[in-house]
Design a protein around this nucleic acid. Sequence first.
DNA 1: GTCTAAAACTAATGGGTATAGGATCAAGAT
DNA 2: ATCTTGATCCTATACCCATTAGTTTTAGAC
Lengths: 191, 191
Amino acid sequence: MPLTPVAVVAEAAALADEKGLESVTLSAVARRLGVRTPSLYTHVRDHAALLDGISTLALTDLTARIAQAVAGRSGREALEGIMGAYRSFARDAPGRWQALQRRTGPDVAGSDAARSLVALTDAVLHGYDLPPGERVHATRLLGSTVNGYLTLERVGSFDHSEPPPDVSWGRTIDALDTLLRAWPASAPKEN
Amino acid sequence: MPLTPVAVVAEAAALADEKGLESVTLSAVARRLGVRTPSLYTHVRDHAALLDGISTLALTDLTARIAQAVAGRSGREALEGIMGAYRSFARDAPGRWQALQRRTGPDVAGSDAARSLVALTDAVLHGYDLPPGERVHATRLLGSTVNGYLTLERVGSFDHSEPPPDVSWGRTIDALDTLLRAWPASAPKEN
DNA sequence: GTCTAAAACTAATGGGTATAGGATCAAGAT
DNA sequence: ATCTTGATCCTATACCCATTAGTTTTAGAC
């Protein structure tokens, strides 16, 4: 079974999930594939390209999960679906998740998967009654919160206070649901 | 002027801010200090400890900024203060900011600076009328959102859609302010 | 069977982390 | 004044990783 770019990236992603993205080195991947390091250069340009490959794969996987999770749902159910998909992805594939917190090459950010992810988020927001110009902001807020929550959880920021993160996770969904129903008009409130 | 642990970490942090945390290597730091690499081992245990040192420094700096920014303010003003402090910190000291997105050694997470940061956030929430048990969740939500927003901004997730991030930033503050005033009770809303 | 192109290999360079052990130098003891 | 001692920086070395160059292997086309 010959090596292919896809196989190399897949093995790298598996390694990332097992040992963390830091330990994704070309030599470690080569070892896993039973091959000498330089052989990989036939399939990937360099180390950065390999990481970008993992990012793209991650984005694709994540988007697929989200698509599953929001299919046929709307409103709060859809919100729960998308948030749950993010979290389970970050749990199941921590290395890939890490790969999404990097600044990547332009091909990743401009990829179909990236566009789909935005579109899916946007679709979830359709279930809430937001002014047209506000959906972008809500999309960004949603993405930010999920992203930040999972990062803080991963780095252990919640480990030193009660209650356990799971509780806050539920409350976060509640809060976002409430917020999307009470989205502020452009004029901010007085103090 | 002899080297000290503090001086080494400070130089490493400066390098991180200039070139990114990835380029903080012991040899690069040694070069900058006009010293041979092994000399640094007198002052820092290893590479990981150096990074932890940057994280601690970052946390201290950030906390100091926040303390400044929320002093004498409450409610929305305090919210704007703390969020602004986060963002300006992430702008001015991108390398240190990056250092806060890593899983660190236990001394960092349990440090005084970490406790202060939580206390300051908690103080900001005092200006809003939350049920006592809910403040933890709100603290975590606030932290998550700020963190996530700045990460997404840094990795360029907002580069491929309009409007520019600054606009969404203001709307994010509006949204959080609204949310904190309309914080949901523990029973979630119906769909 | 032979040819050829892809894909793997060996060899080598340069930079990084880390340890071991030696030189230097300042400060206090004698 | 000199000796001792401990801290700090040094050289030397071993090993790992990324990357390139050049060679060999291999498998399918003919």
